[in-house]
């Protein structure tokens, strides 16, 4: 069917690669993911609601989404700043620092998790400095935010950076020739230009943070109702062989993830259209 819908093209291999892609994708991604909804449908609506509105589950959603939101907001601010600094200024070791930004992509989450816990625990290098101020970083919601900031940072930097890189200097100069000062140029001209990419970065960072497990479980302490994130709760239910409970929690998260994915695609389509129109 897809073959009949494709546009004329003399290159070979469409049928083969398309067939393989669809087959592999179905086996590895689509069929496995559909089991979540299959399994959820075994429950009645009342059962489902009962599971996902249990206080412990609600608390975990609140924490997962709340902490992810805070972390993504922090990343918008500092990630955009990092992107700006990397694109606009030159300073020593810039290349190395630029490379370091991708660390959370490449570093296994468990390693990131134990490292962050060690650093931000009350005996750790930074935790020790926060202790006298009464700030408890590790084993508290703050620790979760730190871990989620770590995990989400590259998403913001790497979506904003290329847009800033391509941002036409002439447009800034035009603003200056018309009498705008630097701050006015930044707020009225540059910011609206990079806003779609900042929003995309935000959504990516948020989506990643919501599902994050490895880097969080160590630093969170996993105290029920206080520092227990939703993915950890799924894990707990699984350990108790409560498959339906785990699935129900997962189904809610999946739906949220899909909505976020949709939002990301819409954003990219929107900014792509803005760019193409120019």
């Amino acid at each position: 069917m897809a073959i009949s819908l494709k546009r004329r093209n003399i290159l070979p291999g469409f049928g083969l690669t398309m067939g393989f892609t669809l087959l592999y994708m179905s086996l590895i991604v689509l069929i496995p993911l559909s089991t979540i909804f299959l399994k959820s449908s075994e429950m009645t609506w009342a059962q489902f609601c009962h599971v996902v509105t249990a206080p412990r589950v609600l608390a975990s959603y609140k924490l997962s989404f709340g902490a992810s939101l805070v972390a993504a907001l922090i990343n918008i601010l500092f990630g955009s700043l990092v992107a700006w600094v990397l694109v606009r200024y030159s300073f020593p070791c810039k290349q190395i620092i630029d490379g370091l930004v991708d660390l959370p992509f490449a570093l296994p989450t468990a390693v990131g998790g134990i490292a962050l816990t060690t650093v931000y625990a009350s005996t750790g290098w930074i935790g020790r400095l926060l202790e006298p101020w009464g700030i408890k970083a590790a084993f508290s919601p703050l620790g979760i935010v730190i871990a989620l900031t770590f995990i989400g940072l590259p998403f913001v930097v790497r979506t904003v950076q290329p847009v800033l890189q391509d941002f036409d200097r002439e447009i800034e100069e035009a603003s200056a020739t018309l009498g705008a000062n630097r701050l006015q140029t930044f707020i009225r001209v540059i910011l609206p230009g990079v806003l779609p990419s900042i929003l995309t970065g935000f959504t990516l960072a948020f989506a990643r943070a919501v599902g994050e497990y490895g880097s969080v479980v160590f630093i969170s302490g996993n105290m029920p109702l206080r520092t227990e994130i939703a993915p950890f709760l799924i894990m707990t239910k699984l350990d108790q062989f409560d498959y339906t409970g785990a699935t129900a929690i997962a189904a809610v998260m999946l739906v949220v993830s899909f909505v976020l994915l949709l939002a990301i695609n819409m954003l990219q389509w929107w900014s792509g259209r803005q760019k193409a129109a120019d």
Binding site: E170, I171, A174, P192, G193
Partner: peptide, 12 residues
């Protein structure tokens, strides 16, 4: 008044 080669209009 400066008119840029590629106009540099504010697209937003």
């Amino acid at each position: 008044g400066f008119v840029f080669q590629h106009y540099a209009l504010f697209r937003n």
